[in-house]
Design a protein around this nucleic acid. Structure first.
Lengths: 361, 361
DNA sequence: TCAAGTTGATAATGCGTTTTATCGTTCCGT
DNA sequence: ACGGAACGATAAAACGCATTATCAACTTGA
């Protein structure tokens, strides 16, 4: 076991009878107006390099270049979660593709201690992200304060998914949930529905807010009256009871956020003896990772996860390339509607019947 | 808008009113016999670092010959392949877990150019892996020469999956395919089978060789005669024809490597009118990512992918901790048999009947 | 013949750490 | 009062390369 030493630039220089600078210039082909090396000298250098098996030390190269071509990937949950596998994976595929294309390597921040089982940007007040030139952030429940601090430290980063800070804006690549939701609503309105309810989780993430905004905007644009009670953010009350109330109120369609209770909705309908989609049209504001307990193909829209991941990396690369790395850049990507057979036109008979039971029109 | 620069050690030193050396010593907690920094100075340094958001530049650390607690992950294919998603993912889960536990961050080498669509360790002769303290290698069709070169450069790495080099051995964490295959064979022998065929791909990867070795060893240990023709490495010939020949020869069970043609075997059996498992027992030497086109539950064995990933990281960490980082360490993990209902005892009648058609016993 | 380019190449500096020998000071025991 | 520890901290070299201003020598044109 002897300590091996790679040949260095000076070794090549010595052998070729030139200076290290010359070697660097020749090897990297950095010959411009003021620096010129005649072809025969170049050949001499290259021959020397070859004969020694010389390869540049990338670490030294990075150090001399002031940038290390490393992009961080930070998730507020485990990066490769076992249960959410289908959630993160497509983002990472996009991130990897873009990084590969742009010649960046990726740093996965796994060491960041997990107090309370979640990841944190700072440990002992130190921002380990700084190890990379910039970072892509990802995760459903980020810590706003940590993100805010990142901004203050002028660290370049891009979020995957729209994020707003109490003070100021940040860069992100997002899916246009609002537009997609509105499009979904238009589809339902066009089918003839006039009373469409919204089912969601009682969270205030940006993505949820976007969907709700799209929901309300669709009503507004058509000048169709919207009862605030038709927006139900699932918390303590019984889902079956709520659906029952909806039906009594003449609701003929429901749009629902995706998530753990999506299957429960279908189940509740079964319990109520509601025929899908004849009695109730069901559309989901996102794509469903799990199969639903039914035989229908759900009407959903596809979140462009892979594209979002790639876009975030590209945005970040652009930030790093320009003078002001703290500039805010935002990209919004469209979602593609996927029409299954879980929606159909409302039965007029049912509507009439329900109107008798429901509130005054 | 001013161009942002990462805070450097000198910035911290200036703010704390000490020398860069002191900062380094405090931050890395390198206080030994001869070097001492009193607690209050330490606090001052740490406070300064915190307030600037300072974190050491890993590139500079590497250059200075120190460790940066970065572990590389290199795959010879895309890290997040779209089609082989189920293949790499479990390894990565294990890698992530272990890295998190051991306080390492991960570098995904995505930048390495893909001539011919595959990844290469060297681009223009440059080995970018050196950015990390060591690396975990992964991928089904590695380039032996590149790996050999890595060894020569004395770069510490661990392969996931057994690998042998023409000259010399390397570190790996592997699954014990040989033992698992042998166990599977014993299971079939115990069921009463005496003529078991092997179906595989015409490749010479270590994992395939291990399985074939286990296959032959099982025959040898029981002193049951093995016709070399019963080992069929699928290349040009028609799978259905081969299975037909097997049956004529009195074969009552087949063990098959997993892979793209696993479903084809079942299909061929259907074509031949072979009843599974009554006419032919079928066992797979690995786990099946895709569902097979049948109603049975396949008898397989589980490759401990997650454990392999974690073991590789732990091995690497151990290597890095010891004096000689080029030492060879190998770990072999057992596979767990998963008995479905695709295997059963041979029908004695059929065996007798076949003996008439087949070769002399 | 001389000023003005052109050519070929280099010296010097910077990149951001780690590491170790060394140095001045204070303290203690006798 | 003095030699020797213990203390606190630093200077300086090393790591291997990239960049750029500069320089000597050689041409060229008038």
């Amino acid at each position: 076991m002897r300590t091996y030493k790679r040949p260095r630039m000076t070794d090549v220089a010595l052998l070729a009878g030139v200076s290290p600078a010359t070697v660097s210039l020749v090897i990297n082909n950095r010959l411009s107006g003021n620096v010129r090396i005649p072809p025969d000298t170049q050949q001499r250098v290259l021959a020397a390099a070859r004969s020694l098996g010389y390869v540049a030390n990338p670490v030294a190269q990075s150090l001399a270049g002031a940038r290390n071509r490393l992009l961080g990937v930070f998730t507020f949950d485990a990066i490769f979660p076992v249960q959410f596998r289908d959630f993160y994976y497509p983002f990472l595929v996009g991130v990897e593709h873009a990084a590969e294309e742009l010649d960046f390597d990726l740093v996965l921040f796994t060491s960041t201690s997990t107090r309370d089982g979640r990841r944190h940007l700072y440990r002992q007040g130190v921002n380990r992200l700084r190890l990379a030139d910039g970072a892509v952030l990802l995760g459903s429940e980020e810590d706003k304060e940590e993100v805010q601090r990142l901004v203050e430290e002028q660290y370049p980063f891009v979020f995957i998914g729209r994020r707003d800070l109490p003070h100021g804006r940040i860069s992100y690549s997002a899916a246009d949930y609002a537009a997609a939701t509105q499009e979904m609503m238009d589809y339902l309105f066009d089918l003839g529905h006039r009373r469409i309810a919204y089912l969601g989780a009682p969270v205030v993430t940006e993505s949820a807010l976007d969907r709700r905004r799209g929901f309300q905007e669709a009503y507004r644009q058509r000048a169709i009256p919207l009862d605030p009670q038709w927006i139900w953010l699932h918390a303590e009350r019984n889902l079956t009871a709520v659906l029952g109330t909806f039906l009594k109120q003449g609701i003929t369609a429901v749009v629902a956020e995706t998530g753990p209770f999506a299957p429960l909705i279908v189940q509740s309908c079964h319990e109520l003896g509601v025929k899908l989609p004849q009695d109730l049209s069901l559309a989901f504001l996102g794509d469903l990772s799990d199969e639903l307990p039914w035989e229908l193909e759900a009407t959903t829209f596809a979140i462009p996860r892979q594209e979002m991941g790639a876009a975030a990396v590209k945005l970040l690369a652009e930030l790093l390339a320009q003078k002001d790395v703290t500039a805010v850049r935002q990209v919004t990507l469209p979602c593609r509607l996927s029409l299954g057979n879980s929606c159909t036109g409302p039965r007029t008979a049912a509507v009439a019947g329900v109107d008798l039971l429901g509130r005054a029109a």
